[in-house]
C-alpha cells in the first residue's frame, strides 16, 4: 500500500475455490468497512462470486467485464473512474479482471497498457483495486506482465510486494509497437481540417459495404470524426484514414504526423467546466477496441467495431 492509500493488487488463482478465497473476503472486508464495492469480471466469475457472497451480494455492484471492458481503454474512464466519481471522498473497493483467457493478441498490448495506467490514473485516490488472473489458463508471459503492472501480488495465503513491478510509463512504452498491417490493401483517404465531412462519409461508406450493423454506424461516424479531428487539430497534418474488414470487426485507422504525449488522454474526464478533452473518452466508450502506436514520426490510432 502506498502512502496515499491507493492499492493495486494482482490475485493469481488456479481454480474456482482459490478465486473465491481470494475475492470473497476482499469484498466482505470492504462492505464491513462501509466501502462501496464494484465487481467487474467475466460472467462465469460473476456467477461464482454472486453465489459465494450469498446475501451480501445485494450490496455489491456487478458488471460483466467482457462487455463493459471489452475495449481495455474503456475500463479506466467508464468503469473505474465512473464508480469513484459516484462516491466522492469515500474509499472504494473494486475487483477488476481485464485480462481473461481468450483475449486476442491484438487486444493484449492495450490490456497491459491499461493495467499499467491504472497506477498513474488512481495514484492518490482512495481506491483498492484487486485484479484476478487465471493462473492456470493464462500463458506464463501474461503473469509476468501482471507482476510488472501490480505493486502487490496475492496468491493463496501470501501477499507480497511485486519484485517485477515497473514504472507504468516504461510498461506503456514497452507495448508501444507498430500495429500489424491490414490483411489486404486498405482503402485510403488523405485529409486536412476542412475535409472531416469526407472522412466521415468515407468511413460510413466502407462500413456499410462491410456489413457493419446499422446502429453501429453512428458510433463509427462519431469515433472516426473525433480521432480525425485530433489528427488535424494537434498535428501539422495531413491526416490519413484507412479502412478494412477483419473476420469479426470493421477497422478504421487514422494516422497523423504528430506525437501522442499523454497516455491518459481519453481515460480521465476533464473538469466539468472544461469544454474540451472528451473526444477520446467518447471513442473509448463506443469502440470495441482502440489501439495506438506513437513515435517521433507520427501517431496511429486504430478503431475496431465488431460486426
Amino acid at each position: 500500500m502506498s502512502a496515499n492509500g491507493f492499492v493495486h493488487e494482482a490475485l493469481f488463482y488456479e481454480d474456482a475455490d482459490r478465486f473465491l478465497s481470494g475475492t470473497v473476503p476482499f469484498v466482505e472486508e470492504g462492505l464491513a468497512a462501509g466501502e462501496p464495492v464494484l465487481v467487474a469480471v467475466p460472467e462465469a466469475n460473476l456467477d461464482l462470486l454472486r453465489a459465494g457472497l450469498s446475501t451480501t451480494a445485494d450490496h455489491v455492484r456487478f458488471a460483466d467485464m467482457t462487455q463493459a471492458g471489452r475495449n481495455p481503454g474503456r475500463i479506466i474512464p467508464w468503469v473505474l473512474y465512473a464508480f469513484l466519481a459516484e462516491h466522492p471522498n469515500e474509499r472504494v473497493r473494486i475487483i477488476g479482471e481485464p485480462i481473461w483467457a481468450g483475449r486476442s493478441p491484438v487486444e493484449y498490448p492495450a490490456c497491459v497498457q491499461h493495467e499499467a495506467l491504472i497506477n498513474v490514473a488512481f495514484d492518490g485516490s482512495g481506491a483498492t483495486i484487486l485484479c484476478p488472473y487465471d493462473a492456470r489458463r493464462l500463458p506464463p508471459d501474461v503473469l509476468i506482465d501482471a507482476e510488472a503492472t501490480h505493486p502487490v501480488l496475492v496468491s493463496g495465503d501470501t501477499r507480497k510486494a511485486s519484485d517485477g513491478y515497473q514504472d507504468p510509463h516504461a510498461v506503456v512504452a514497452a507495448f508501444n509497437a507498430p500495429l500489424p498491417g491490414p490483411p489486404a490493401p486498405a482503402a485510403t483517404l488523405v485529409f486536412s481540417g476542412d475535409q472531416l465531412r469526407s472522412v466521415r462519409s468515407f468511413a460510413i461508406e466502407h462500413a456499410r459495404y462491410a456489413g457493419l450493423a446499422k446502429d453501429r454506424l453512428i458510433d463509427l461516424e462519431m469515433a472516426v470524426n473525433e480521432v480525425a479531428t485530433n489528427a488535424v487539430a494537434h498535428s501539422p497534418g495531413p491526416g490519413t484514414i484507412r479502412a478494412w474488414s477483419e473476420r469479426d470487426a470493421f477497422v478504421c485507422e487514422i494516422s497523423d504526423p504528430g506525437s501522442f504525449t499523454n497516455p491518459l488522454a481519453g481515460r480521465i474526464p476533464p473538469p466539468a467546466g472544461s469544454g474540451r478533452g472528451r473526444g477520446l473518452l467518447l471513442v473509448n466508450h463506443v469502440c470495441d477496441l482502440v489501439r495506438l502506436y506513437t513515435s517521433g514520426l507520427g501517431t496511429t490510432i486504430r478503431l475496431h467495431l465488431n460486426r
Partner: peptide, 13 residues
C-alpha cells in the same frame, strides 16, 4: 446532419 463531442459539449454548457 452531424454534431461532434465538442459541439454537444457547447450545447450542454
Amino acid at each position: 446532419r452531424f454534431i461532434d463531442a465538442r459541439g454537444a459539449t457547447i450545447l450542454a454548457m
